[in-house]
Design a protein around this nucleic acid. Structure first.
Lengths: 371, 371
DNA sequence: ACGATGAATGACAGCGCTGTCATGCGGTGC
DNA sequence: GCACCGCATGACAGCGCTGTCATTCATCGT
């Protein structure tokens, strides 16, 4: 009886055969421990920089780890700790100035905190549907940053199933933490800039996407309207046109509409720099000098803006990326923190050559309080 | 004695207390198994689509998994399988047309194969040094794609320590798998295009980076030289100038040098589109009409090229990304595959408005076999 | 009709690490 | 001089999954 239990429990003929004969196995903590003459626990404590490890043991362990070219397996660690050390990003593409810049700051920021950046791209609807169906980020990340700008309510709801902090970038989402610039204030500032230059007929060109106007698009329109109203200028629906960024024909049409108004605008505020550049291109094609006859103002400070000498309202994707990274880390580390923290970043006006005073009658100095 | 061993080995009063009272624990396979009335093994087999699971059990398991909103923990799985299901990318930044486009194709490609994309960014030297010192990708990925274009030999050597397939993108590396376009053939084709248009004085502007000429830069110069030599035109060192892409002053100088030659070029082949655009800008600033007086040809088919109506030699970052993804997957799945497989992708000429026949004397039709 | 075959499933160890508890040891207070 | 304390370290289970082997049936050949 006792002999039996002894056999069953103790002997256990080690029926398990390693699949890979230790060809090029990664060294484990046990290997490091053996080499340093300590236990695996001590190696773990040492490498995590924990509490009390005597200096001599510490250096011995560190050297052994270095000699063996050892690296901790995050898989194994996360199995125990429940943390993956990964922040995931959901984005439609990386082929975008904004997302590329934001992630280029976010990545190193996370890395400095020992975390990795995982990217889920959904350029097509099928990939997107697949993402929301399988939620591959689940259990494979500690937080998710959402760079997709036109999620359906259904999709947003699905993200709650992730059971991890979800941070929305460049968009609000009630009850969820988010990071975005103050589009309203930016657009207000831009419109004010044009007002200060003496313009009174100011058009606004906004972009329309597959799923209607984006969040920022609406906010910027509101800022534009606020500034006009604040200046006592009545809103004129005819001065607001919508188009598609990549569709030159529609842009030409939209610009044409504005020009054929009985009282055409003297300044055009485009919702984004890429659109503004197209507008300038269209105007010049039509022999309308920019800025001499029409001033054009953009939004974003896309590299194209500097290239095109385009005045613009700058936002900093780098700052957004950094803020998003910090927010992610704090939400991961303090699960009881405010679950709906919003970080709102400022914009700033960058006047360049595409906006000039209307008939030289106004410099951007004294604000024209009211019309 | 036997009693003792029995106590020590067998009784083990289960002293372990779960740290987190099962507040919001993720469901495990055991949970799914219980709900479906099967064993965890069967759940695992089912979810991996393995061999023989009876249809009814399969559907029962799948439903249970769906109801519990279950997702396999990759951490736990990879502990056993030794595969992480992750492909890592090393890149200096994401704020680049080429890298952004390549990854935007690579990501979904990997995702379709059930793999994730992890990004390591090294915008600064410190981040880069840190990456190569700690090699955080080690054990956290199954393969590494290298998008950094100017690694030192030391750094390249360090990548061998990773014990995983390392694939170089847009660069050769002897003995390592890589994916790149045929820069030589592309530049030859471009030069031939200019020759076919009747040009004989063709300049080449190349870019110089922090660590000298990049790999592609040299290849493209070689292609240019090959085409000239093939056409019987002697190489003229004065027609080859170097500059820095982002340095307008140096570009102006370089263009100035070319223009002040006793026999100035009638066509300029710029190593990249961004450079070509700057060259055009510089020429026009100097009242030299493009393409009337000087034709300009770029390389890459950067979005800027279409914008600027720039003729160019197109490469497809998407195709490169896709090919890199496929190569990564095959190297992961077949470790005994050719460890130095090279994938060379073609380029193609996209004639636009910036290249025209010299004095109208030649159309791109009959190739000028030799000078 | 009975053993042999194969398909479907269950049992169980162990991947490499971390968190807890147990242990050993030199120093302090009375 | 003895109990006590605290620091440094070791022992060990278990995180959730997968790969192997064992087991159970139903099916088939002879």
């Amino acid at each position: 009886m006792t002999a039996l239990s002894f056999i069953v429990i103790g002997v256990c003929p080690l029926c398990y055969r390693p699949l890979m004969p230790p060809a090029q196995r990664h060294p484990t903590m046990a290997d490091v421990a053996e080499r340093a003459g300590v236990s695996a626990s001590t190696v773990s404590r040492t490498l995590r920089g924990l509490s009390t490890v005597s200096p001599e043991v510490r250096s011995r362990v560190e050297q052994a780890a270095r000699e063996l070219n050892f690296a901790v397996s995050r898989q194994a660690a996360s199995l125990v700790t429940g943390k993956t050390g990964v922040v995931a990003v959901l984005a439609p593409t990386l082929n975008s100035w904004f997302i590329g810049s934001a992630l280029s700051t976010l990545g190193p920021e996370l890395r400095a905190a020992g975390m990795d950046l995982l990217v889920y791209l959904t350029p097509e609807m099928s990939a997107r549907a697949d993402f929301f169906e399988r939620l591959p980020a689940r259990r494979n990340a500690d937080a998710l940053l959402v760079f997709s700008f036109d999620l359906t309510d259904e999709e947003t709801a699905r993200l709650d199933d992730l059971q991890m902090p979800v941070i929305y970038v460049s968009q609000h989402s009630d009850g969820c933490p988010s990071v975005y610039v103050d589009d309203v204030a930016g657009a207000r500032r831009g419109t004010q800039h044009l007002l200060n230059l003496g313009h009174r007929r100011i058009a606004f060109v906004q972009t329309i996407g597959a799923s209607g106007f984006s969040f920022s698009s609406n906010e910027r329109l509101i800022g534009y309207q606020q500034a006009l109203t604040g200046a006592g200028i009545p809103l004129d629906d005819e001065l607001v046109v919508a188009t598609v960024v990549s569709d030159k024909r529609r842009i030409t049409e939209a610009v044409g509409e504005l020009l054929s108004l009985r009282e055409p605008p003297t300044a055009i505020f485009a919702e984004q720099d890429e659109l503004a550049a197209s507008v300038i291109w269209t105007l010049r094609k039509g022999r309308i000098d920019v800025p001499e006859r029409i001033s054009v103002l953009g939004f974003d400070d896309h590299p194209l803006a500097e290239w095109s000498d385009l005045s613009t309202i700058a936002q900093s994707p780098s700052d957004i990326g950094r803020a998003a990274g910090e927010l992610a880390r704090s939400l991961i580390n303090e699960p009881d923190a405010d679950p709906a923290r919003h970080i709102v970043l400022p914009t700033r006006l960058i006047p360049r050559g595409s906006t000039v005073p209307l008939r030289g009658d106004g410099e951007e100095t004294a604000g024209n309080g009211a019309g």
